[in-house]
Nucleic acid binder design. Structure first.
Lengths: 249, 249
DNA sequence: GTATGGCATTGATCAGGATCAAACGGACAA
DNA sequence: TTGTCCGTTTGATCCTGATCAATGCCATAC
């Protein structure tokens, strides 16, 4: 259930990237890693910029090195739904597909470690491990999408907010390290609008529910983005998930 | 975008199964197909029965041969959300995972072509094509899940119903054959309750919206399940999707 | 025939979020 | 300092879909 941290232990760093590339792993031969290293180049994108638009030709795949990006879909009349949240070490793009299926947007400044697609695909053909790793990652993403579907279809606004906070805490590796200390503190990496797009709500409802959690003493706000969790157990209860359902375990 | 029919053209039948097993393909060596054939056994499940419960040990993977099954998640208080709809030739189960992550339920009588998991995984190791095929299929499912997220998060009840009908029509191969004839007719493979669980609605809302489409002459009902589409264009408009967005194209 | 049980439809009412609108607050620039 | 901009908060009201409840329909069993 801790879908995005699975098998991180066997992934490896490449070259000067400060992250683990989850698409390759310690089982790969050194010469495969070397050829991967020779393919890569970096790209930086400013907060708020769109990295690729839905329908664009995409001639690369990439790992997020730093920052946060989102995948989202927009209807003709402007309604938008986020369908993916990408944190450092997550993979962007799809081998075997020429056009982007979603808008990819940087919500903070983002650095990508890109691989040109054609050579990457060729490397993948020669290196079964990479394909297997990609299959594992895709299955994990599918699980995440299905948990997200439960949230979108059946949870109340209150439960949605609590779940989002729990997910952000769970996925931010730096937070898990100090999980047993005092009150948990972190900066929300998303605007209220982005949270709304994640949760299938309006930004007003998001704001009201965050205020309610604050009023009830579950969390404290410093500024608009910095959150201090005073009652993690209560927050987890509010998610509506099974208490033993994997979060933070 | 026609996510579940992709690459069907290269998939092959095995033995006496009347369906294509999308996990294997015409690129596979005959001896690989033979070993696959030697692994398989059949299992039938009655309508309404649960095939596996979330959390159960699963010692097999399978293709749906006939009938329709669903994947769903249930919260402690009974709210349930469908997260997958499985039609003939769809794949059930996950190599590399011991326990089922969702309830799998037969909504009609179902026949499965099962493969014991361990030998299937070993075959997969020896046969890169199968892993690649599985990756493609998983990516397609991920796309389907993300389209579903847009539906759950941002569409109105009316749009949800129209979209569900369009999806059923699109995915039922037998319907696409006669797509250019007169009015399209088919039997709904789901109860009103299952439709509600698919769409994140209550069954009453589903019933009301179906009645509304009937009242407006878009569809006609014979009995409770048999549907005749009188105005396909209108139905597609009501989905809220881009008119050119892939449905039936 | 009547009874039963499982779906489905329809109605009346309620409430959770959406919508529309105004005001707030901090960062930054002039 | 003041003004502007952007993201956010808060308020008032509306509306879609949920909830609760009754009835209908049809197949099967007695």
């Amino acid at each position: 259930m801790s879908y995005l941290m699975a098998s991180d232990t066997t992934s490896i760093k490449c070259g000067e990237c400060p992250i683990r590339h989850r698409a390759v792993c310690s089982k790969c031969e050194p010469n495969e890693l070397t050829s991967l290293d020779s393919l890569k180049y970096y790209r930086t994108v400013e907060a708020g910029q769109t990295i690729v638009w839905c329908g664009d030709e995409m001639d690369f795949v990439a790992s997020i090195v730093s920052g946060i990006a989102t995948l989202s879909q927009t209807m003709e009349d402007g309604r938008t739904q986020m369908v993916g949240l990408l944190l450092p070490s997550d993979f962007v793009g799809r081998p075997g597909r020429a056009q982007a299926a979603y808008d990819v947007t940087a919500t903070t400044d983002v650095t990508l470690c890109c691989f040109r697609k054609k050579p990457f695909e060729e490397l993948m053909m020669r290196t079964p491990h990479i394909g297997q790793r990609l299959l594992e990652m895709t299955l994990d993403e599918l699980d995440a999408a299905r948990e997200w579907m439960l949230l979108l279809g059946r949870k109340t606004a209150r439960e949605k907010i609590a779940t989002l906070l729990a997910i952000i805490i769970r996925r931010d590796a730096s937070l898990n390290l100090k999980a047993d200390g005092g009150p948990l503190e972190f900066d929300l990496p998303l605007t209220r609008e982005a949270m709304a797009d994640y949760l299938g709500l309006t930004l007003e409802t998001v704001s009201r529910q965050v205020s309610a959690l604050k009023r009830e003493g579950v969390i404290e706000l410093r500024g608009k983005r910095h959150i201090i969790v005073h009652d993690m157990d209560r927050l987890l209860e509010e998610t509506g998930d099974d208490s033993d359902g994997g979060i933070l375990t």
